[in-house]
Design a protein around this nucleic acid. Structure first.
Lengths: 194, 194
DNA sequence: TCTTTATTAGACCATTCGGTCTAATAATCA
DNA sequence: TGATTATTAGACCGAATGGTCTAATAAAGA
């Protein structure tokens, strides 16, 4: 069937708007205007703004998971190098935007995590999937002796990613890489038991 | 002069609303209703919502700085113990709210840090003041040999606080202490060179 | 005292909010 | 084919948005 508009396009546009402007600061009309679709089509695809937000979060999570998997799955590099490559590339991506946006999952966790159960749960699901993927690579690093073994791979993965998110917040108000760089440096030191 | 309403009361109420609901999700009318003041009085004290937000951020920063200074200045405990006490108490405070709110400075950094220059700068100022206070205590810990010396006190202070903020985000979507506890545990291990 | 300024008070403004509704159209299935 | 369903289209809804305006009142300074 030939549809004029596609749900995935609306989600992609909404993802970009919410990532850069926030959830409460992005109105349905912003999305309609950006996609040039009538309101009826939007509400044909999505039950509510909350439902839309949930699907945006899910799509973002999947998309970033694939990106993560691409880098961490490239066994040309050692496990630790792959992890460093991922966060290095994330810093560079944010650098290009002057750290103004950051990670949508991280942003929405703080903006709506305490207010909306549905969105908080979706964020948690996606976050856990990332951590699992990172954990797998850390386990490989532990197996080859690159990463300390006095913590489980999962614990270290959580720590690594949470710390990095904290750095992104600082970089956002400073519009500067310092926060994320500091966290990058020290957390990887810790992972290596240094 | 006898004033019916006081700016500080409005700021205190707005602080609570913004901390729990976010900046964009809190309307001027929410504040007026909560304080039972007419709109004219609000705009007599504040030039705009942005101006109000800036002053709320400033007041929150000062308030939390005093709390921080109280604990870190109590030389009955060792420097490291004082630092642990501060973050331990912060975890407990958040626990009481099921981690639904978190730190207003951290929340607003992500919500408006990339959108509003004025608020981002105020957040940065307050953040830096906290880091300086924490840094001072870390320096004391380094002096007595409790804390590693291969990084400056300031670098370690930034790392400690940024990591903790990252943990708060995770705890917020999980409504659980795990994120902050994990970060607490590992970051303090790192500070001790373990 | 008189003048000036700060404060209180809330009606009012245009705009935007998320969401509903009806009607027309297009595609699918029986 | 005819009936059914999905989609497009946008006018419309009440409520809320940040902000302005005028008027009344209270306090301070000359």
């Amino acid at each position: 069937m030939h549809k004029k508009y596609h749900k995935s396009d609306i989600i992609a546009m909404g993802q970009e708007l919410i990532r850069t402007q926030g959830y409460h600061n992005t109105g349905i009309n912003d999305i309609l205007t950006a996609c040039r679709i009538p309101k009826g089509s939007f509400y044909n695809f999505f039950a509510s703004k909350e439902d839309f937000g949930r699907q945006v979060l899910e799509a973002y999570g999947n998309q970033q998971w694939n990106y993560l998997d691409d880098i961490l799955g490239d066994t040309a590099d050692s496990p630790l190098t792959r992890l460093q490559k991922y966060y290095r590339m994330t810093i560079e991506g944010n650098q290009r935007e002057s750290f103004k946006n950051g990670c949508m999952l991280n942003n929405l966790s703080l903006e709506i995590g305490g207010l909306n159960e549905v969105l908080a749960q979706e964020a948690d699901v996606q976050f856990n999937l990332w951590i699992q993927r990172i954990s797998q690579c850390i386990q490989e690093g532990q197996d080859v002796g690159e990463i300390r073994k006095d913590y489980t791979a999962y614990e270290l993965a959580e720590y690594l990613h949470m710390s990095f998110n904290g750095g992104l917040g600082r970089s956002k108000i400073q519009r500067h890489a310092m926060g994320t760089e500091r966290v990058f440096d020290m957390t990887f030191k810790f992972l290596q038991g240094m």
